[in-house]
């Protein structure tokens, strides 16, 4: 299984957060919102103009810009 940025997940697919590569406050904020390593995350959809994106994490929906999502490295679950 390969590690990819969150932005590369296919819509609807499930993954686990491996690490957050952002710095300082950005990283803290992403983590506080629940994107810590090991958390399961799924890609819901991209906004009409492609950015930001919407993900589902810890049972709620969160939107973030691609620039930040690039820094969230995930491991995609294998398709059943």
């Amino acid at each position: 299984m390969t590690e990819i940025p969150l932005t590369r997940l296919a819509p609807g697919s499930l993954a686990r957060v491996v690490r957050v590569m952002a710095d300082g406050d950005s990283r803290r904020r992403l983590q506080e919102m629940g994107l810590v390593s090991g958390a399961s995350v799924s890609f819901v959809r991209a906004a009409p103009l492609g950015d930001p994106i919407e993900v589902r994490i810890r049972g709620y929906h969160l939107s973030l810009r691609k620039a930040e999502a690039e820094k969230v490295i995930v491991r995609a679950n294998e398709m059943p």
Partner: peptide
């Protein structure tokens, strides 16, 4: 400064 983080909950 840095572009502030855009992190927004989409509540039901």
């Amino acid at each position: 400064g840095d572009t502030p983080l855009f992190l927004m909950e989409l509540p039901p």
